[in-house]
Design a protein around this nucleic acid. Structure first.
Length: 494
RNA sequence: GGCGCGGUAGCCAAGUGGUAAGGCCGAGGUCUGCAAAACCUCUAUUCGUGAGUUCGAUUCUCACCCGCGCCUCCA
């Protein structure tokens, strides 16, 4: 495979070649668990998920690690406010993160938690200090000395050249040596969570977590490091500085950053009222598959305008794909094969692959599947699809969905779970009629539906349209769509 | 101010130095007892504005306008 990806470090699109031929070691900065994740967080996680799935699909053995930041200023502040321990506080949001990820069909990475690696972080800092890259201040905090790492700024393309001059070591000084120096370790404060370590009592700074955990899980040098674009500076820049200072080796070779999304054309912010969590959207009646599809529609490096029109549009697109698969699986085909069809399937698979190889151009890959869909539907209308064509066509579709993950309709159970959550959280007022309607569907068993459908067919045969229409209306109200095709009757759940 | 990104049909949005993918919505049609699905046709002579390079630019260059991101822990 010749995957080409934009590398923030070089500022160019490069061929992605892992250090070990067939193995990829990658790391993504995960959530800080002080609140429910919002759609912006999940744009990034889905972008990395697509990359992860694509690499796996093409034969790579991928070790994908994601951290969970379960200690930071906000967490400490909020847990104190709520009168619970840091652990109790974060537990709720870690669970929520896992649930939301599953809701969006994100494949689970190997998750690592900051609070389970505190000892290693302290040891890392102690080594940095020994090497002269870190210093302790009077209060017991530790800082990284940027002046000691000349390459500082290479990721974010910032020039810090001017600051090498005046920087000196003065451990007796209470303040940081340089304003740019960043905290590696924060000394314990009364009433705040802290840990006893070789460098004293305190808690880690944010940047050190990712350096320590990524290297612990993936080694000093690994293939790819991902995150949102806002993390380029200072977070990732600082990770590079710490890690490479300690090991003398290149840290991550490839840096992958997802662009921020806009909501209705504006930056997402709480003050604008356009700040949405996954749960907010589901409570409004939007399906998880619509959200996932919308977030995959725009290539990860382009701004994505997240709109409610777009969400509805995404729902239609997903339904069209699902209908297509349903039609393939439920139609009768005559024996034999149509070479044009198997060739089309083959071309589509190739086109999807080459689109994604091109810096994960998801828009192109989606265009490819829709082109196939239209051509095959057209051929089915004309009776030109044969039994042997089914397998390659379905395979092309599954191949696509192995990346995009929207074909299997598990939206309703996921939505019902969020409905239940809203009730236990006292958010009944946020439950929309749309959600109630969708959640109320699927009450009929397959058996019952089959029975009613055959009754409807019997009525149609005897031209009792009044009765057949009544049954149709009853089923429609229950979310069952009955379709009469030239191959006979079939039904599906809306 | 520094660095970077983007402005393409009603909406979302891809793309290429050679004459505009795909999805959604809308209109008309085919099929159809009804319904649904599907298909077909139509919907940007035009790609923020102005100038330049070129046989030819949406695609390259310059300027300008607009929007966005980062520049003290926000994906």
């Amino acid at each position: 495979m010749a995957l080409r990806l934009f590398n923030t470090l070089s500022g160019k699109i490069e061929e992605f070649n892992p250090i070990d031929a067939n193995r990829v070691r990658m790391y993504a900065c995960g959530p800080t668990v002080y609140d429910y994740g919002h759609i912006g967080n999940f744009r990034t996680f889905i972008a990395v998920d697509l990359l992860y799935r694509f690499l796996q699909q093409h034969g790579y053995d991928v070790r994908y690690v994601m951290n969970i930041t379960d200690v930071d200023d906000k967490i400490i502040r909020n847990s104190a406010r709520d009168g619970v321990s840091v652990q109790q506080y974060t537990e709720k949001y870690i669970r929520a993160f896992l649930e939301d990820s599953a809701t969006l069909s994100i494949e689970k990475p190997l998750l690592v938690r900051a609070t389970e690696h505190i000892t290693a972080m302290a040891e890392f800092i102690a080594k940095l200090e020994k090497k002269g890259f870190a210093y302790r201040t009077d209060d017991g905090s530790y800082y990284f000395r940027i002046a000691q790492f000349p390459a500082y700024g290479k990721l974010s393309k910032k020039d810090f050249g001017g600051m090498n001059d005046g920087a000196r070591v003065d451990v007796d000084e209470y303040e940081k040596d340089s304003a740019r120096d960043f905290a590696l370790w924060k000394a314990a404060k009364a009433g705040e969570a802290s840990w006893d370590t070789v460098i004293g009592r305190g808690r880690p700074g944010w940047h050190i977590e990712c350096s320590v955990m990524s290297m612990e899980e993936l080694g000093p040098s690994f293939d790819l490091h991902a995150g949102g674009e806002d993390l380029i500076f200072p977070h990732h820049e600082n990770e590079i500085a710490q890690s490479e200072s300690l090991t003398g080796q290149q840290f991550a070779r490839h840096w992958f950053h997802a662009r921020f999304l806009l909501v209705e054309g504006q930056k997402m912010s709480k003050s604008l009222g356009n700040f949405f969590t996954i749960r907010d959207l589901v409570l409004k009646g939007h399906r998880p598959s619509s959200i996932r599809w919308l977030l995959t529609q725009v290539p990860y490096r382009n701004p994505l305008n997240f709109t409610f029109d777009g969400l509805k549009s995404a729902a239609s697109s997903v339904e069209k794909l699902r209908n297509f698969r349903f039609r393939l699986k439920s139609s009768q085909f005559t024996a034999g094969g149509n070479q044009a069809m198997s060739q089309l399937a083959e071309e589509t698979v190739a086109r999807i692959k080459s689109s994604l190889e091109d810096d994960l151009n998801t828009a192109e890959a989606q265009a490819a599947i829709f082109d196939m869909l239209r051509k095959v539907n057209s051929a089915m209308d004309a009776g030109e699809v044969r039994q042997d064509d089914l397998k390659p066509l379905l395979q092309a579709l599954e191949n696509f969905d192995a990346i995009f993950g929207v074909l299997n309709d598990d939206d309703k159970p996921k939505m019902r779970a969020i409905l239940d959550w809203a009730r236990t959280e006292g958010r009944e007022q946020d439950i929309s009629p749309e959600l109630m309607e969708i959640a109320g569907l699927d009450q009929l068993t397959d058996e019952r539906i089959n029975q009613r459908v055959s009754e409807m067919e019997a009525a149609r045969k005897s031209r009792d349209f009044k009765l057949s229409d009544a049954i149709r209306a009853e089923l429609t109200a229950a979310g069952i769509l009955v379709e009469n095709t030239k191959d006979g009757v079939r039904w599906r759940r809306k």
